[in-house]
Write a protein that binds this DNA or RNA. Structure first.
Lengths: 148, 148
DNA sequence: AGTGATTATATTGTATACAATATTAAAGAA
DNA sequence: TTCTTTAATATTGTATACAATATAATCACT
């Protein structure tokens, strides 16, 4: 007799839930900066590498340019970044952090870290959790590759 | 000297990636049924419990009614479900599977299972991965609770 | 029965998210 | 140099996703 397929047994569903919970989780530490979770992740990438193209961010964040273009415009409007055509290659748009974007790195990271600490992961637990998730990604990527 | 905060070290980011990859992963098995991943998850819940309210689905799926109402209307339009006001309590909308929705349970599950098998999880690995994700959810939920 | 509070769903506004298409610029070929 | 191809970003259309608000029905209390 085949086992019944239930919602809660689906790993995709549990990953979705974790994703939703993270979105909610980040609301509190980011509220005072008027940032969403995805906008924070974008800034995180820019704090690592500034002055990059939309395409670079798209690869790094795993988001399409159809998602990024409006998102970056909102970040620009809020004063965190600038968007400028590359003078040497006018197809490209270069994204740079503004002084505001640079100055707020530490306060934002502190606010987020304060919340992350409340998750109470010790180093081993955290490493194990990351390994499990990365391993899942690899399995999914391998399978997705085969589709092409 | 404090460690640098990088994108790839963020567990939230890795969860997001896994979520995105799952969305892509489900495209292939669901394409022939013209279903999205979230629509599939909704049907999965209805195959467990049919004739439920929007509110019930909202709780079960962890989605707001602002998300579910248009999603259910699309499922209705495609012929998978019906939406009817409860005669005994006209505030409620009861969601029922159509014959099409019932008849396609097995074909859809088979199509999905065929892809899931390609993830190559054995029972122990799968159980461990699920435990890790559920544990993460609990940590996030506990923290989110404190915010209220 | 009347009314205030509660419940259930729908709507609105904003923000992801991506596929497909369009636009423009650069690079390469004839 | 002109033409084709390629590359980079933007736009459009559809689908999540949720907070805040609106609407309507029910419940609880007097």
């Amino acid at each position: 007799m085949p086992k019944e397929v239930t919602l809660n047994d689906q790993i995709c569903f549990q990953i979705s839930r974790a994703h939703q919970l993270f979105n909610k989780f980040y609301q509190e530490p980011l509220e005072k900066f008027n940032l969403t979770y995805v906008q924070y992740i974008t800034l995180l990438s820019l704090w690592e590498n500034d002055g990059v193209t939309v395409n670079y961010l798209s690869q790094k964040l795993g988001l399409s340019n159809g998602t990024l273009t409006p998102l970056l415009k909102r970040l620009e409007k809020a004063g965190w970044i600038t968007r400028n055509r590359d003078k040497t290659d006018e197809r490209r748009v270069l994204i740079h952090l503004t002084q505001l974007g640079k100055d707020n790195k530490e306060p934002i990271l502190e606010s987020v870290q304060g919340c992350l600490n409340r998750l109470n992961y010790n180093d081993d637990e955290f490493a194990d959790a990351m390994d499990t998730i990365i391993d899942l990604q690899h399995r999914l990527e391998k399978t997705n590759e085969n589709d092409k």
